[in-house]
Every structure is written in C-alpha cells, then in structure tokens.
C-alpha cells in the first residue's frame, strides 16, 4: 500500500550554542546572530517518513513548513535527503503566532495539500520546546495522535504500529490512519543528503525566489523544481485566527535574567587551593 506522508518541519535559530552576541543590549534576541537550521527532531521525523517511503513503493513525502521566505531552505534540505516536494506557508499575517495560531495555519495548509495517510513531525522545536503544535494540529484535523515516537515499526491494514519512548519506559501502540505522529530525538538520525538529489534539486525554488533570481522560465521547463508557496489566503485561513490575533497567549514580559549574585570564594587550580577547599567542605560537613 502506498502512503501519502506529510512531514511538518520548522526552520529554527540554533539556540544550542548561543554566543555572547546572541543577545542585544536591550535584552532581546538577536536572531541574525544565530544560524538558521532544520529543527533537529524534524530531521528524525523526516527519516521515519523516508523509511516508510522505502518500504512502501509509490509513497510520497511532502514537506510542509511555515516561516519567512528563507524557510524554503527547509524544503530544499528535505528534497536533498529524499522528499518528493514541499510547501512553504509564508505570510506576514502569521507573525507573532503562538502554538495555537500556528497549528491553526498548519492544519489549513494540510487540508489544502489534500488526502494524506500520515503526518509526521518532530516532537518539539528547539526555539520553543513546547511540543504543542503536533497534538494541536491533530486535534484541529480531528485525527488521533501518537507522540514521543521512536520508531514507526509498520504501517498496514490502515494501522500504524509505533514504539513510543516515555520517561520511564517504552510503549508499543497501534493507531488507525490517518494519524499524526511526533518523533523523539532518540529515533535514528536522518540520512545524509544524496549527491544525485542535490544535483537534481539545487535550483528548486519558490515562485518569489525564482522571480528574484531571474532564472527565466527554468521552473516552467522543469516543474519539479517549483516549490509550493502559500499565503494565508491560499489556504483559506481566517485572518482572525492567525498570528497575534489568533493567539490566546500573550507575552507580558521578556527578561534577561540577572542572577542573584552571591559572594563567592575564588580558588585557582593549584594543589594547595583545591586541598584548602576540600578541607573546608569536609569540616563544615558539606561532604563526608
């Protein structure tokens, strides 16, 4: 049985190794100083999708991402690794969306993509760590969800069997299609880019990118290079439910935390100093 699979992926600032210039003086985040990457767990999700494509001939994997125009990189990255196509959902009206407004927009885009068997996404994105968008998209589509997946073991007879990784153990569950699955970082890493696919898709572009790059009618000659690009109107999204106005949560305050400084005793790494410290800790019964 061939499968239609949608992978939800997000371009995120790499928050894992934040340098000193990542914060502006006013305490806000300097996004420009952080490299934009494919959200790590979304890559785990892509791999699960590609494995299903390998084992179910004629299946398709479609990337769906929401973000600024440069997020088209995520679709190209997916194509280089084996995805079949993708859509970028981009519109200023989406700005300031919380997880609920984001899932609203994504679920409208999923409806526009059309029939699907599985939606697979990473468990959470590293810039928010909420793990909310996956389940919320599932709820809005009225389909079941399986979160914390480590392996999609099989898909047949209209059912997916999935191994979940929980805090203190594992669960094997079976769910009816169509289904949304979120994948953990403990799942296998994504396969690398494929050289042939890079050759094939390196000029893949959205319509706006193609217009800016003046590639002439390349996209018309090779339609597979055309990446989908949708605005809120294209996916019939109600503007009231998008972006800030569609977000029940509001950010009241952002702070750069200044730690409550303690008066600390300083030591260097010489033998004498370390011995002094250990003796002090033993004498005041902190250790031993």
């Amino acid at each position: 049985m061939s499968l239609k699979i949608i992978v939800l992926a997000k371009q995120v600032p790499d928050t894992r190794n934040v340098g000193k210039d990542a914060m502006k003086e006013d305490g806000t985040v300097n996004r420009a100083a952080l490299p934009a990457i494919f959200n790590p767990e979304d890559l785990n999700a892509l791999e699960q999708a590609l494995r299903l494509k390998d084992s179910h001939p004629n299946s398709t994997v479609t990337i769906l991402t929401m973000g600024p125009p440069r997020a088209a990189d995520i679709i190209r990255e997916g194509l280089f690794r084996g995805a079949d196509g993708g859509y970028l959902l981009t519109d200023r009206i989406f700005a300031g969306a919380d997880t609920l407004a984001t899932s609203y927009a994504l679920h409208m885009a999923v409806k526009k993509v059309g029939r699907f068997d599985l939606i697979i996404s990473g468990r959470q994105a590293i810039d928010g760590d909420t793990a909310q968008v996956g389940p919320q998209v599932a709820e809005k589509l009225g389909i079941p969800q399986i979160t914390y997946a480590e392996e999609i073991q099989s898909v047949n007879d209209g059912k997916a069997t999935v191994k979940r990784r929980l805090e203190h153990g594992v669960e094997i569950v079976a769910g009816k299609l169509p289904l949304l699955i979120t994948v953990n970082g403990s799942a296998p890493a994504c396969r690398p880019r494929n050289a042939m696919l890079i050759q094939k898709y390196k000029h893949a572009q959205t319509a706006s990118e193609a217009a800016a790059a003046q590639l002439g009618d390349l996209l018309n000659k090779r339609p597979f290079l055309k990446l989908g690009e949708w605005s809120a109107t294209d996916v019939n999204a109600d503007p009231q439910q998008c972006g800030l106005s569609g977000s029940p949560t509001k950010v009241k305050k952002i702070e750069n935390i200044v730690f409550q400084a303690k008066e600390s005793k300083a030591f260097d790494d010489s033998d004498g100093q370390i011995e002094e410290l250990m003796v002090e800790l033993i004498n005041n019964h902190t250790i031993g």
Binding site: F259, A261, S264, D269, I274, E275, L277, M278, G288
Partner: peptide, 26 residues
C-alpha cells in the same frame, strides 16, 4: 555569579585533585 565557591581551571585538572584531596582529608 550564583556559586559559593568558584574554581577557575580546567575540569580535567581540577576534578582529579578534588578526588585526591578528599580522600586524603576525609
């Protein structure tokens, strides 16, 4: 800034010394 004791040095150097001087003095 929130530490009571700050040891400036490489962990690889400091930790073996902490072990050594704990054993010696406990």
């Amino acid at each position: 800034t929130i530490a009571d004791y700050v040891i400036v040095g490489e962990a690889e150097t400091v930790i073996p010394k902490m072990i050594k001087y704990y054993k010696k003095n406990s």
